[in-house]
Design a protein around this nucleic acid. Structure first.
Lengths: 374, 374
DNA sequence: ATAGGTTATGAATCTCGAT
DNA sequence: TATCGAGATTCATAACCTA
């Protein structure tokens, strides 16, 4: 219960500390209307059945911790409504909340927020640049999580640093979808055995954006599911005060140690994120989906030597070959590889036009598009 | 109520028609368990206060239609639960549903789906490449909408064309975030005055992806909030049957006219990349029976690390193990399972050849026998 | 030292038909 | 309805290892 970097005086709040115990009881013991922002990463209530193995037969290290077990939706809803009510009481009138979740729980959380009179400002999609794939090929890769940003009341004058976020986003408005990598490498905290200290540690980049967007220096940020303390670490860096609540001793210990190592940034030291992006990859299927080429339409190689027909899934069928634009081109040419974008042409008004033109159109739209997060 | 392109016989379903009236009543009048997929774009229950003006003072043409007005969350929930229940009754046991929405309503919809026993498969984010900017700078640009894909029951054997979607995405598995432009240009339907015919017309590219992913040709797709008929138009193109329900006369008229102009793609363009799971099963014993491998011959794992001997009944004997090609491979690797077809190799002229080659030969012969060239 | 190849791993509601 | 066994299935990134 240490990790102090500043005396706790205002409202008698236990600032920059990690409280132990149950988050609902702890929140109810704090003074009402004293917190500027709450960031919450509650249990997701995953309902996993058996083990899952990768195609190489290695076992996936699943989230099977006791704190993620609920007996029913009703039990999960009860828990959710109780902690959200405690959170609302704690917020200042102009305070706001962020909650992160997946499709297992976020719809329950969102409904509860609305029912309790929170005012939804945005739902934000964290698009993971490196998600875990779907190993059995039975669903889409679960490549995102959802955050809800809501103010305490409909008429709250919430904090939103529009200009700062615009700067973070190369001068255009920040969108509701954020591309950020998951937490790995040195940032990922390990326990004594070298295993991950927490199964669901969030990346600091995510908290960085949340806190820059919706708090000011000196604000009090509370995290009722503190875990290994990402919220506290980023809050300290950015000159915000935090209050953490975490009932697992092991997590608290890791978090305290972590936060003690964090240095507060100079006011001038705010991070610049200006990584150049490679040209975005455009799947040929998008050309078909967007109706730029129709299923059934013929494509031709240079000189019309070969032709193949477009299918609805973005593959080609030719003479005894089918596959991607690259594969069919390579097969015809007897070559090990082939750039289908420059190889294939379509006919318009008697003219042969390379399909790469269509890719360029799509890329132009993507460029024109507002917002290039990250 | 026309737009027929095929006689309605199966189950006496009104195929390829647009029904008028209330969607709940209409759905309840159709036979239970008769529909493969439901795509629903229900009212979003937007809570707009006054008019919204752009910085140049032009007025934003908001969704303020009477059908989007609900007096409370309770009223919206009641409506949602009623139409979802009617939809569930209509679905075949292996049927599935898609619902699209925004943060105003999707949390209500998601909770209702879970409460009614639908089984969530993915939430999908439609990331708009060209969203409307946020004019007031008080929030993030609302640049996405959310779709929920759920099967009727937890144990439904739902349709998912994994390989086709992988092709659509340039050979890597499709993710849960889809970047697609909003509906504009020629695709956006206009009324007699040149105004948009429907405030929330969805892009055909979105429906294309949904229908390719989760239906097969000939499936019946129902859309209870048909609007201007994007679902019907794309279903017709892709050789699926549709049933539309729409209570607004004006929308029905636009939709009928629109769908009548759509041409179905020919069958060969609708064939998509298939699944290996659908290939006929070949017992390893057939390889031995046909003399492609002889009893007593040695098989080797990759790198010749392990070997085993073929027996006359199509089992293998190795070092202290015997059983199927899969069992012996799994035992050697200490793995929970093993695909013996790709694990084992035989030697010919000093080269190691995977036994899966032999299975492919047998399958090719089986195809030839059926008189189906290719 | 560097380049290149190999291995490890991440909030996951992850098979299906025959018996 | 439960059990059994065939056999289908992965992407991005960082750490580690080898030449």
């Amino acid at each position: 219960m240490a990790t102090k970097s500043k005396p706790a005086v205002v409202h008698n709040l236990p600032l920059n500390q990690i409280l132990d115990g149950d988050c609902i009881e702890r929140m109810n013991a704090l003074p009402a209307g004293s917190v500027d922002l709450i960031f919450a990463d509650p249990p997701y209530n995953l309902q996993l059945k058996g083990d899952l193995h990768r195609p190489d037969n290695s076992k996936v290290d699943a989230v099977d911790d006791h704190w993620d077990q609920f007996s029913s939706f009703a039990a999960y809803d009860k828990f959710t409504r109780e902690w959200l009510a405690a959170a609302k009481r704690l917020l200042k009138p102009n305070g706001a909340i962020w909650v992160i979740g997946s499709y297992h729980n976020i719809f329950r959380v969102g409904s509860a927020l609305q029912d309790q009179g929170y005012w939804m400002l945005n739902d934000v999609v964290w698009r993971k640049s490196n998600p875990m794939p779907n190993f059995r090929g039975k669903r889409l890769t679960n490549a995102h999580e959802t955050l809800i940003w809501a103010s305490r009341d409909e008429d709250s004058k919430y904090t939103f640093n529009y200009e700062a976020l615009k700067e973070l986003n190369d001068g255009v408005q920040m969108r509701s979808d954020w591309v950020l990598p998951i937490c790995t490498g040195h940032e990922r905290l390990k326990d004594e055995n070298g295993d991950k200290a927490h199964p669901t540690q969030k990346p600091e980049s995510l908290l960085h954006r949340v806190l820059i967007a919706t708090t000011n220096p000196g604000d009090v940020v509370l995290d009722p599911f503190f875990g290994t303390g990402t919220t506290g670490a980023v809050a300290k860096m950015l000159g915000r005060d935090f209050i953490g609540i975490e009932r697992e001793e092991a997590y608290r210990k890791v978090a305290e140690e972590r936060i003690s190592r964090v240095r507060r940034f100079d006011a001038s030291a705010l991070e610049i994120t200006g990584s150049k992006r490679a040209e975005p990859r455009v799947p040929f299927g998008q050309v078909v989906e967007r109706g730029m080429l129709r299923p059934g339409e013929e494509l031709y190689s240079v000189g019309s030597r070969y032709s193949a027909k477009v299918r609805a899934d973005g593959t080609l069928v030719g003479h005894e070959v089918k596959g991607s634009i690259h594969q069919v081109g390579a097969a015809y040419e007897g070559a090990p590889s082939c750039n289908g974008w420059t190889y294939w042409h379509f006919k318009r008004d008697g003219k042969m036009i390379p399909i790469d033109i269509l890719r360029q159109q799509i890329r132009a739209e993507m460029e024109a598009d507002l917002g290039r997060p990250h």
